[in-house]
């Protein structure tokens, strides 16, 4: 039997998580390069429809599990279902999106099975038959090639944006119903109400210009520099996480994976280092200007123009210049 690659596909009952589709692209690449067979795996309740959707992509089969205990996510039932599947089928790889849900569940699965988990990968390398995974380390300033030294299955999570879902190859796959027995699962962690800070928020997604501020601002007093600049260019103010955590701006102005996603014509990133959690929320902006004192800040990898220097000096000078011409 040929070796297998499984891709776990996340969903909310109605839609497939976009990062899972990106993960499926990675699965297709790996299947092609290693000659392994690719299967999509779907856990949930009444997910046959979603399974049929997935069957329109080039995979060997879509395996789905319908179980009332999988309707709402709990790490307990998710881990048990996956343990049962991985113990009987033993794929070479289980690929997953690096989602908030999987990062809550996958390390537990990994420890339970005694199988390695490589988290937050952005790529893979295959040379002379050896597969290594590429991920960022040290505050995303260095890359690492990581080798797995335990027996398969290897569990892998993929960072959002590492592949383009558009690259998915279409196909026609069979859909397989795979039951699991979750009768022994004890749910200890109970899910309560959801709080949505985003509900009444300022909608930054429509803004033409955004001045966004990060940790580099250092002091609340310096926020005036940002407000002055935003006034001159008629911009909305946004922020990366540390600024919101300090209460220097309200949480509804946070941009990034735990905040809003924006794509203005002009995005001024001031004192923002460019952690991936922020970058995913703003990288599709048309023109990005980054002002930062650290030459190695990852924000310069997504910015169109970068200014290397002290924002306390540069921002007022920029505001003054713009006031003259606008």
């Amino acid at each position: 039997m040929k070796e297998l690659i499984y891709v776990l596909v996340d969903h909310n009952g109605e839609n497939i998580n976009p990062t899972s589709l990106e993960t499926l692209v990675l699965g297709q690449e790996l299947a092609e390069k290693t000659g392994r067979r690719l299967h999509a795996l779907l856990l949930g309740c009444n997910v046959r429809n979603l399974a049929e959707q997935l069957a329109g992509y080039e995979v060997d089969s879509v395996i789905y599990t319908d179980n009332a205990l999988l309707e709402d996510y709990t790490f307990e039932s998710q881990c048990e279902a996956l343990s049962q599947i991985l113990k009987t089928e033993t794929p070479a790889l289980l690929l997953m999106a690096h989602s908030y849900q999987n990062i809550d569940m996958a390390p537990r699965l990994s420890a339970r099975l005694g199988k390695a988990l490589v988290t937050d990968c952005v790529d893979f390398k295959l040379s002379e038959g050896e597969l290594v995974f590429v991920r960022k380390m040290f505050r995303a300033k260095l890359y690492a090639d990581v080798r797995v030294r335990s027996e398969p299955p290897w569990l892998v999570t993929l960072q959002a944006g590492s592949r383009f879902a558009d690259a998915l190859v279409k196909g026609s796959a069979k859909v397989i119903d795979r039951q699991v027995d979750l009768s022994s699962v004890e749910i200890k962690r109970v899910t309560g109400e959801t709080v949505d800070f985003a509900k009444d928020r300022v909608d930054l997604s429509q803004a033409e210009t955004i001045v966004a501020v990060g940790r580099g601002i250092k002091k609340q007093e310096n926020m005036d520099l940002i407000r002055d600049l935003a006034d001159v260019v008629n911009a909305e103010i946004g922020a990366s996480r540390p600024v919101v955590d300090n209460d220097w701006l309200s949480r509804d102005r946070q941009i990034g994976s735990s905040g809003q996603t924006v794509s203005p014509r002009l995005y001024l990133a001031i004192g923002i280092s460019g952690a991936i959690q922020h970058v995913v929320g703003m990288k599709s902006s048309q023109c990005i200007v980054a002002i930062n004192s650290d030459r190695n800040a990852p924000i310069f990898n997504v910015a169109t123009y970068g200014i290397l220097g002290d924002l306390q000096e540069i921002v007022p000078a920029l505001t003054k210049k713009l006031r003259e011409i606008l």
Binding site: L142, R149, N301, V302, A303, L308
Partner: peptide
């Protein structure tokens, strides 16, 4: 033996996209 091993750590310099302006403000 650790189940994960870093075989190579490196900087990716070619990745910088920004045109970097530096000098007098």
């Amino acid at each position: 033996v650790p189940e994960l091993e870093v075989v190579r750590l490196y900087q990716k310099k070619e990745e910088r996209k920004a045109e970097l302006l530096e000098g007098e403000t």
